[in-house]
């Protein structure tokens, strides 16, 4: 391993990727059959199990290599650039749903209400409909509902996520200064905040479904609300799990003050999830 640091690391053959694809294939096959009304629980479970196992082995192998000191600075830079562009692709993914929200609010609903050259749309198809937000559309799809207020749980959640952004930064500094105790503590705080966020979010969903009659069925408001918050929540969950993983790694003494790409990648991801939430808070809950 002596000369490892000055060579670009090209891993030897690997069987994880194809098994990973097989897992995804099985999973999607199962979900598709289920959506079509069939019974595919075994396929879904098997698929999911393969995916999770493969991630475990794949990442495990990379972690092993990393700890063995196989990666030089150039490899590290590769990982960083890769992670950056991965996050960018996620940004674009959320951009679509925000785009849909803006389109519905700024264009589709006003048109249905007769704006622009849509006088007849309103007169002949949706007579009496007036554009407003929140809206479940001219046909009152899903029935009366109450929108989600911004200043209750969502505001609290904003505070929670912002705080978690601070705690992870503290953890990062601790890592760089070699202060392991603070590192462990603040990382744990970070993912705990993440899980609390998720708890509130789950509570909010139950509240929406049971008391506000706000569901995915509630027209365009319900659609954009659940799509945006749902995918965001999914990302928070993934981010929190990743935080747990690097926390465990920290406990095992992984990472050095100079060499901790995985830590930073997770931190970037967490900040990204945070920023998306600010967008959500402003455009979905507040305005």
């Amino acid at each position: 391993m002596a000369h490892a640091q000055d060579k670009y690391y090209i891993p030897h053959g690997t069987k994880w990727p194809i098994l990973m694809s097989l897992g995804l294939f099985t999973l999607f096959l199962g979900v598709s059959v289920w959506l079509n009304g069939g019974n595919a629980t075994p396929a879904i479970i098997v698929g999911l199990a393969i995916v999770i196992t493969m991630m475990f082995f794949w990442f495990g192998e990379v972690i092993g290599e990393s700890e063995a000191g196989t990666f030089n600075d150039q490899v590290d830079t590769s990982f960083r650039i890769g992670m950056m562009w991965f996050i960018f692709s996620e940004v674009m993914f959320f951009a679509v749903f925000f785009g849909a929200l803006f389109y519905a609010r700024q264009l589709a609903l006003p048109w249905l209400g007769g704006e622009g050259s849509n006088f007849f749309t309103n007169l002949l198809l949706w007579e009496g409909f007036e554009s407003s937000w929140p809206s479940n559309g001219p046909a009152d799809v899903g029935g009366e509902f109450e929108p989600m207020g911004a200043w209750g749980i969502p505001a609290l959640n904003t505070a929670i996520l912002l705080t978690s952004g601070v705690t992870i930064t503290v953890a990062h500094h601790a890592l760089k200064e070699g202060n392991r105790r603070v590192l462990g503590l603040f990382l744990a705080l970070t993912f705990l905040l993440g899980f609390i966020f998720m708890g509130f979010q789950a509570y909010e969903y139950i509240h929406a479904y049971q008391e506000l009659n706000l569901t995915m069925n509630s027209g365009i408001y319900g659609s954009t609300f659940f799509m945006l918050t749902g995918f965001h929540g999914m990302h928070v969950t993934i981010g929190a799990i990743m935080l747990v993983v690097i926390w465990l790694r920290c406990l095992r003494g992984h990472f050095t003050a100079k060499h901790h790409f995985a830590f930073e990648a997770v931190a970037w991801y967490w900040h990204f999830v945070d920023v998306v939430w600010l967008g959500l808070f402003i455009f979905v809950y507040w305005l």
Binding site: L35, F93, F94, A95, V96, F97, A100, Y103, A104, L107, A108, L109, W111, L112, L125, W126, S135, N136, G137, P138, A139, V141, G142, T215, M216, N217, G219, I220, Y221, G222, S223, T224, F226, M227
Partner: peptide
């Protein structure tokens, strides 16, 4: 993202692409 919305419109009752619910 676009095809995901198709999926939820098709199977989960969302209204992204349906005028009745305020979509287009």
């Amino acid at each position: 993202g676009g095809v995901t919305m198709l999926l939820t419109d098709g199977f989960f009752g969302t209204s992204f692409f349906q005028a009745a619910g305020g979509g287009d």
